[in-house]
């Protein structure tokens, strides 16, 4: 079975400066939920934005490639990309006030997508599809007449999920879709995301900090550290037996909701540790079934 998304030797950098990401090798199967975790600045967002062909200004892919269904996405072909965008790879952004155009009604923003991709107005069959995806994320069709500021943060986020699912893409990149939301909204957002995956068989690349959430929803987890993928494997295996020292440290840092204990002393890893953890000369090796980590043989 060929992978849906194949990232091979991907290196991203800004100009002549040392690369900020990679080389990364990672693959996703159809319908799979892959979680990407790691510290801020570790390369999670850069990786997800490379998949979306939306790297920050100045950043470039220096080496490697990303393939969707075996077709390489780079170098970018503008026409081909317009067909890939949203129809094949959609995006659920981080909840932010201005993620939706503040002076345009939600309905018009759905209309823009339909008009620009299919050249038709939002009516009839398409209107039904929009209402269907809204219902799926538990929103009334009345939100179509609203402006973004009239909705709560959680509702806006569900509008974004509905938008991402409208064209039934094969892959959705969700970049911290639940951060900045309260716990109840988080739950609803995640739940709807998962339901839609089950309904449409969409693969989800979930970027986030929240390890508890990842443990619950992810099939596989990739741990990024200093621009390197240091461990990649089944969520269960990683949470049970993390192989990479950074992964172990990361999992230890998660507070428990059940047991109240003194917070473990927050010590920043020493420079030597950091150097060692991100050492590129250490190859990824299998540490369990389907589970690889970048660490020396024990």
């Amino acid at each position: 079975m060929t992978a849906l998304l194949e990232i091979r030797g991907l290196v991203v950098g800004y100009g002549d400066a040392p690369p900020v990401l990679g080389p990364i090798d990672l693959d996703m199967r159809a319908g799979e939920l892959v979680g990407l975790v790691g510290e801020s600045g570790g390369g999670k967002s850069t990786l997800s934005r490379a998949v979306l062909n939306d790297l920050p200004a100045g950043a470039n892919i220096l080496e490697g490639n990303i393939a969707l269904n075996g077709v390489p996405l780079y170098p970018v072909q503008p026409q081909a990309w317009r067909a890939i965008r949203w129809k094949q790879i959609a995006y659920v952004p981080q909840a932010a006030l201005n993620i939706l155009n503040p002076v345009r009604r939600i309905g018009a923003q759905f209309g823009d997508m339909v008009a620009d991709h299919y050249g038709v107005a939002l009516a009839g069959e398409w209107m039904q599809k929009v209402i269907d995806v809204l219902t799926a994320v538990r929103l009334e069709p009345a939100v179509l007449r609203c402006y973004p500021h009239q909705l709560s943060g959680g509702m806006r986020q569900r509008v974004c999920i509905a938008m991402a699912m409208l064209f039934q893409p094969q892959l959705v990149v969700a970049d911290e879709p639940t951060s900045a939301l309260d716990v109840v909204s988080q739950r609803l957002v995640l739940q709807t995301l998962l339901e839609l995956r089950d309904k449409f068989g969409t693969a989800i690349l979930l970027v986030g900090h929240d390890l508890a959430v990842m443990a619950q929803v992810a099939d596989r987890i990739g741990i990024l550290f200093a621009g390197q993928l240091v461990e990649y494997g089944p969520a269960r295996a990683i949470f049970k037996e993390p192989a990479h020292p950074y992964a172990r440290r990361l999992l230890q840092a998660v507070p428990s909701i059940r047991v109240r204990s003194d917070l473990p002393e927050a010590t920043f890893p020493s420079e030597a540790d950091r150097q060692h953890w991100s050492d590129r000369s250490i190859p990824m090796r299998l540490v369990g079934p389907n589970h690889q980590a970048r660490c020396e043989t024990q």
Partner: peptide
């Protein structure tokens, strides 16, 4: 602004 980035990723014209 975020909505322009989002719109671009959506593949709007």
């Amino acid at each position: 602004e975020d909505y322009l980035m989002y719109g671009r990723v959506k593949g709007l014209r």
